[in-house]
Computed example of a mutant assay.
Amino acid sequence: MNAQIEQSETVQQSRQIEQLVEGRATSDGAGVKLTRLLGQDLQRRLDPFLMLDAFASESADDYIAGFPNHPHRGFETLTYLLVGRMRHRDNAGHEGLLETGGMQWMTAGRGIVHSEMPEQKDGLLAGFQLWINLPAADKMVPAWYRDVQSPDIPQFGRAGARVRVLAGASHGVTGPIQRPKTEPLVLDLELPAGTRFEQPLPAGHNAFFYVHGGEVEVAGRIAGRGRMAVLSTNPRADGVALHALADSRVLLVAGAPLGEAIVQHGPFVMNSREQIEQAVYDYQHGRFGFNNSD
């Protein structure tokens, strides 16, 4: 789905890069090698976002064991594949297959047990998983997910840039996922060298971007490949302007903070220790699943 924008939306004053973050090598699931860019140390600063992992490998040994059955409660996830294939199954019998350029949005809500397993035995696998918090009032909603394959992700061109809208809206182009409380904006940007891309942002939203190819400059500060940039919250700034110093790929993320307590225990994110204890109990007693209303 392509949509060429006609209206002009410019940024008068760009936010600045407040902090550059170098990802931490880690592993998850059955030993899948990841780079953790956003972790618990930044959860309050980048509320409502809880975690961002990047994965990229040409060696099947780094990822083929995948993520066998594991639980979640209390938040949402966006999984986006730049290249490769990933099959997911849950404990209610649902399954789907993500392919290159596709995404999955999952609402864990009151609880789900699922697996995410790469299908190929060799070749490149690359992508991201972003965790987005749920408001306290929505922590126990029924689990839900949606797969969106690459042809169904809206995209547009602007001044040489190619923009894919995964969530929210950009320059009049609306993505497949909308959330009225956290208002997430997630854009995949391809910026040829010399391109300038401007994205208006609400003053109260937290925002960051990750450079997974090339090098970009924002308000005089440079972010190179492999760096995540936390953007300032200057109330006078009306958005962000990114200038590509080389052919670049950037994941740009913004959202409305919830301002609520965050208590995380592994795959459970709630608002209190008592709720975490209940989540562990419910999981151990088989109360996670699409059809369970306990």
Rank of each mutant, 00 (worst) to 15 (best):
A3E: 10
I5V: 11
E6F: 04
S8V: 10
E9A: 13
Q16S: 13
E22Q: 13
R24P: 10
A25F: 05
V32H: 07
L34A: 05
Q43E: 14
P48C: 14
E58D: 14
G66T: 05
G66H: 10
E76L: 02
G84E: 12
R85L: 04
R87Q: 15
H94F: 13
E99S: 12
G101L: 09
M103T: 08
M103P: 02
W105R: 06
T107L: 03
G111H: 09
E116F: 04
E119Q: 15
K121Y: 05
K121W: 06
L125M: 12
F128V: 05
I132S: 06
N133Y: 06
L134P: 15
V141M: 13
V148C: 04
I153W: 00
R158D: 00
V165F: 03
G168R: 08
A169H: 03
A169Y: 01
G175S: 05
I177F: 15
P180H: 03
K181C: 03
E183D: 11
P184L: 08
V186H: 09
D188C: 05
L189S: 05
G204N: 11
N206T: 15
N206I: 07
Y210W: 11
H212P: 00
R221C: 00
I222L: 02
G226T: 13
V240Y: 00
L245R: 14
E260W: 11
V263K: 15
P267R: 05
P267F: 01
V269F: 00
R273N: 08
I276P: 00
I276V: 15
D282N: 15
G286R: 11
G289F: 01
N292E: 01
